[in-house]
Structures are given as structure tokens and as C-alpha cells.
Design a protein around this nucleic acid. Structure first.
Lengths: 229, 229
DNA sequence: TAGATTGTTAATCGATTAACAATC
DNA sequence: TAGATTGTTAATCGATTAACAATC
């Protein structure tokens, strides 16, 4: 039922790299708009963000925007096209599971709601110190009430910032209760059904790239110094 | 001087995808070790993490580990190999710039120091409410003292969690003061010199993937329902 | 008109997956 | 020995970059 080859809907989703670049374009375009610029070409965006102009043209094409040779794209139109494509121009009811330091930070990071429409309506934890309170103006419930509250809030997005050891169980519970998209901050690959989407934010993984590259660079420099002596 | 083709050092760095997977393997291996398992094969890791076994073999090879046909790899040896390769078995002096909600969260997220050796020695902001205090046991200085304190702490890693509008200037100041690796949480592509490494954590970018895919999925379901009527 | 820029097709590049000999 | 698994080379896949006709 879910993957018929006959559907008149794009079978191949837009590539992750493209989706990841769109918010960067959007930010630059918003800055341009603020500074009163009405039109913009791929060359200008490419120079600013250090990408290939062709790539930007292809990325923008997925939003359905049409540009004009010689003058480029209308900035306002382009902003609207990207926001619509990302579904950032309407509220997204969401819940948050796990209120460690990371969870609380996400809860307090206003930019998500302001720019992407993310509305975190409820948070969950097992710590009796937290349950029943409001943290950053968001009510905190015991995890046992997950299904009930998800149903009540009609949330479709669940943010998972619980310890790795319980992440899979919580993901199952969230999916059972009607969550369709999980924004996962736990360092675990979640196993979910076909009708649930998982997007991982792996902070340690990013740190790994930094520390390894830094090590390589510093080792290389030391070897060079050694060679020169 | 910095990129001679004659250097006996790998010219091509290990690919980002590989580096990003290594921490996931590491976490699973640590769990295995805790549960008393001595040896592991790529097949087992692949099943657990839902990757291709060949990919895991190639990824592990970059660490220099050697396995044995039929029995696989020694778990302890493999853990040590990955940690050494990522440079996670020694302390990394670091500083933190920007103490908004995101900055404070990173400061309070113990897992980085415990598992990767990240040691945040000082934090910087411009808010007089914060400067001079200690936040999460870390002294907070005014940004004007960046060079002085970086010099004193010998920090090589700088975490950038300041607003986008000032991120580039702060990155320049960090690089000038001796920071070689910038872990960037600001939604901006930083321009840095050849001897500085930037690793970006783009949270909004990740949210974009989730909201777009979710929209596509829900639209698709609605169309199907429509078709069935 | 002349020339910059779009939209699109073709070529390249890099990463993943498949195939298979070597080996414990 | 027999068979599972490693290490490595070849094939495939997907994303980026180059080339170029269409167009405002």
C-alpha cells in the first residue's frame, strides 16, 4: 500500500545533501531581503556560500521556483518557495522526550519555533523532580503518559533526547502513539517502521570529524618540522 | 609548505562519512565489551547498525586494525584503535564562544568530556550578566579577552555558538589567537585559512530534512486516500 | 543586439556495494 | 578439512561539476 510504483508522486525523495543546503540558502536570502535586495542570481549565492553555481540552480529547482535568464530569481518569491518546500510556513506540533541538559537546551532554543514553526507542546521525563513542573513554559509529564498526551496534542514530530539505552523503546512508544517523524539526538540507529521518518543529529559524530582532522593536521606539521631539521 | 605532493603523509584525508560512522561503531563496541564479549565480526556490527558489512570492514581498516578470518576482531583492540584514530584517548583543551541556550547546553553536556576528552576551560560572551561568573563550573570572560585566555589555556579547539551575524568575526578572532579547529553551531559557512579546520553542526538543516520528508509522506498518504474514494 | 544567466544534458568524481581469492 | 570471515579489487550507484543551447 505504501510504495506502489504506479503512484504519480515522486518516488525518489529529494536528496539529503540538497535538503541540507536549502536552509543555508534561506538564511542568506532573508539577509538579502532585509537589506532591500529584490533579485538574486545563483552566482551571487554561490560566491557567498562557497558552492558551485550549478549546484545551487539544481537545488533551487526542486522547490519549483522559476528564474529568469539575465536577472536571476525574485528574492521574496524564492524565500517563499523554500519555506513552502521545507514546510516551514506553518506550525508543527511536537513533543520532547528526555530532559537532560541537551533536551532542556533544545526546549529553550527559540529559533526553531520562530523560523521553522516547531511548537513543542509537551515534554517527558522519568525524574520526579521534573515531572509535573513547567520547564521553559512547557509542561513536563511522566513518560508513562506519552500515548495520552501525544494523542491530545496531535503532535506528529517527536524529539528524542533520552539516553541511548532507552532510545529504541521510547521511539517505539512514540511511533505507536502516532508520532510520524522522530528527530533523534541519541547516538543510536533507531529501527522504525516504513511510516515513520527518523532524522539523526549525532553530535559526537561531528566531533569525531573535528578531532581526527585536527590530529592529522598537527601530526603532519610536526613531521614537516622534523624533516627540516 | 603546507601541501607538498612529496609528503609521506596521506594526502587524501579519511572521508567524512567514514569518520561519522566510527563513533557509532565505538558505542556498540563499548556495549559489547561491557557485556563481556571478546571478539566481534563485521557481520555482527552490520546487523546491529544496519550497514553493509563490507563498508564496516573498510571503515575499520582506516584505523589500522587487523582482523582474523573466521574469528573477526578483538573487541578491546578495536575500541582502542578507534579511540586512537579519533584522538579521543587524551584531553583536548577547548574554549566556548557564545552562551545562549545552545552554548550553555553544550557546556553542560558531560558526555563530550567523558567520552571524547573535550575539556572546555573557558567560555566567552558579551552579556555583563554572564561575564565574570562561573557557568557549569566554567569561568566566563568578555569576548575582548579571547586572545589572552586562548593563549593561557593553550586551547586548540573553539566551539562557536554565537549568533550568525557575528560568527565570522569571532571565527577570525579565534583563528588569530591560535584556535586550529572550530566546532561551528552557527548557521553560517565560515571562511577560514588553510590551517584551520571547521566542522559544522547545522541543527536547522537537520530539521529541514525531517519536515520536508514528513510533508512528502503525509501528502502522499492524502493523495492515496483521495484516489481510493 | 550582446551578454549574462537559466535550465538541462553529459562527464566526472567519490562513496557504497558486489565479487572473490586468501586465510585462519 | 570445511566454512566463515577478512582484505581487496571491480562494478554500481548517486551526487557534483562541466558544457552548452535557450532566453530574457
Amino acid at each position: 500500500m505504501s510504495n506502489t510504483p504506479y503512484a504519480n508522486v515522486p518516488v525518489t525523495p529529494v536528496s539529503r545533501p540538497t535538503l541540507r543546503r536549502l536552509p543555508l540558502y534561506l538564511r542568506f536570502l532573508l539577509d538579502l531581503h532585509t537589506s532591500g535586495t529584490a533579485r538574486v542570481s545563483c552566482t551571487v549565492i554561490a560566491n557567498e556560500l562557497q558552492y558551485d553555481p550549478t549546484q545551487i540552480r539544481k537545488d533551487l529547482a526542486v522547490t519549483g521556483i522559476v528564474g529568469r535568464p539575465r536577472t536571476g530569481y525574485d528574492v521574496v518569491e524564492l524565500i517563499r518557495a523554500i519555506e513552502t518546500f521545507l514546510d516551514w510556513n506553518r506550525p508543527h506540533e511536537a513533543i520532547m522526550v528526555g530532559l537532560g541538559s541537551l533536551g532542556r537546551a533544545i526546549l529553550g532554543y527559540d529559533a526553531f519555533s520562530a523560523e521553522s514553526g516547531l511548537q513543542i507542546r509537551a515534554a517527558f521525563d522519568i525524574d520526579p523532580e521534573k515531572v509535573g513542573k513547567r520547564i521553559r513554559n512547557c509542561p513536563v509529564y511522566h513518560v508513562s503518559r506519552l500515548a495520552e498526551i501525544i494523542d491530545k496534542t496531535k503532535a506528529k514530530i517527536g524529539i528524542l533526547a533520552a539516553p541511548a539505552s532507552v532510545a529504541q523503546d521510547l521511539a517505539n512508544a512514540m511511533a505507536d502513539a502516532g508520532i510520524r517523524g522522530i528527530w533523534n539526538f541519541a547516538p543510536v540507529r533507531l529501527r522504525v517502521g516504513q511510516d515513520t521518518i527518523v532524522e539523526n543529529v549525532l553530535l559526537k559524530t561531528s566531533l569525531a570529524v573535528l578531532t581526527n582532522r585536527l590530529k592529522e593536521m598537527l601530526e603532519y606539521e610536526n613531521e614537516e618540522v622534523g624533516t627540516l631539521e
